[in-house]
């Protein structure tokens, strides 16, 4: 019973996560991968399932309540995912700009948690130009100017 409840909570939360992601990481002509390219929902699922139970429940509650109640922030009724992507984006923007602390907190949490998933996809990292000096020894490791130390020897030790 408990397991079934958790499964349905997960489904609703993932619908909410997908709805927020679609609005925040749309297809565009700027070369940045979209929510679809970044496989957001599947990766969010594995993140949720890796989290310890208390944190998982917190995030599931966040996205499930967004999915079920988020439409209430816009003048339309129904599930958040049924609003147009443009409208969903406006809802998140409005939440983030809200002078009411809990609403702002909610808006920021939506942006932060979805961008954690977005910004960790390899295609997005490639788009940013990220590479690792340990994978390419020496690459980009420009030594600091040799006289740098003279500015204040031992200032930090």
């Amino acid at each position: 019973m408990k397991a079934r409840l958790e499964d349905s909570l997960l489904d609703v939360a993932l619908a909410g996560f997908g709805a927020v992601s679609e609005a925040l990481y749309p297809e565009s002509d700027c070369g940045a991968p979209s929510h679809r390219d970044a496989d957001m929902v599947a990766r969010a699922r594995s993140w949720f399932l890796t989290l310890p139970p208390e944190s998982r429940r917190l995030l599931l509650a966040l996205f499930a309540s967004m999915e079920l109640l988020g439409a209430g922030f816009a003048p339309a009724l129904g599930r958040f995912s049924r609003l147009s992507a443009a409208r969903r984006l406006r809802v998140v923007e409005r939440l983030r700009a809200s002078p009411i602390a809990p609403l702002k907190f909610l808006g920021d949490a939506l942006k932060q948690s979805t961008s954690m998933i977005y910004l960790s996809h390899p295609a997005v990292l490639a788009h940013l130009g990220v590479y690792k000096s340990c994978d390419h020894p020496g690459a980009g490791l420009v030594p600091v100017r040799a006289d740098a130390l003279r500015s204040a020897p031992g200032a930090t030790s």
Partner: peptide
């Protein structure tokens, strides 16, 4: 980036 970038700029 998935940590340092989460407060970066706006949305969309």
């Amino acid at each position: 980036p998935s940590l340092i970038g989460v407060n970066w700029g706006g949305v969309g």
